[in-house]
């Protein structure tokens, strides 16, 4: 069961994904070992599910199409990159108007810049055009799950507590405020 268990698609706000700088070492023995990042509230993430507004898109490919999309939530912006290996997702982005509500299931990609900054993006498995009802549901669900992760760190039940404590400052208040502002933006 464990060997083939599918990775959960975490609900993480753009701000938290942007702040994510902890990249776990991949198991080099296992070519299929998933890449994980640990977010500041302790989510150990390989896959995410996000819903937001497409605010900008650009084909930055040279030979083949390679789409970069900015998808905005109440806290910041996700970067989604889709090219020839994600043909269905690339097609949806290419055809979508700006602005439009999009739902994305995808894997978190990371790279480190020359300055040492860790940058995160999303490599989509699927992109769907959705509506405001789904977007609103996602914001509330993501706020709730972010607050739950914060609580688990605080009561010591989070599996990631040690990594979060050592790598991030455990300044959880800012993420609580992030979730609260996201909820307040719904009213």
């Amino acid at each position: 069961m464990a060997a083939f268990a599918r990775e959960v698609a975490y609900r993480v706000f753009a701000q938290e994904l942007r702040d994510t700088t902890l990249v776990l070492e991949r198991d080099i023995e296992d070519a299929y070992a998933p890449q994980y990042v640990v977010t500041p509230t302790g989510a150990k993430v390989n896959r995410v599910f996000i819903v937001g507004t497409l605010t900008e898109k650009e084909d930055i490919g040279t030979d083949a199409e390679y789409w970069r999309a900015r998808i905005s939530d109440p806290t910041g912006t996700f970067f989604v990159y889709a090219g020839q290996y994600q043909p269905d997702a690339a097609r949806v982005i290419a055809d979508a108007p700006v602005p439009e509500f999009l739902a994305v299931v995808g894997k978190v990609g990371v790279y480190t810049t020359d300055e040492g900054n860790v940058m995160t993006s999303i490599r989509p498995e699927s992109v769907s055009v959705v509506d405001a009802v789904i977007r609103d549901r996602w914001v509330v669900e993501t706020a709730r799950q972010t607050l739950d992760r914060i609580r688990e760190l605080e009561d010591g039940s989070s599996q990631s507590i040690e990594m979060v404590q050592e790598h991030y400052s455990l300044d959880l208040e800012q993420y609580r405020q992030m979730a609260i502002s996201a909820l307040e933006s719904m009213r």
């Binding site: 605010t55 900015r70 910041g76 700006v98 405001a132 933006s185």
Partner: peptide, 21 residues
Amino acid sequence: SDLTERFKVPGTEAERSVVSY
């Protein structure tokens, strides 16, 4: 206003989107 009201995009991102356009 389409971005901020109908699509609920934060102000700075909406500005960027419009400028890009």
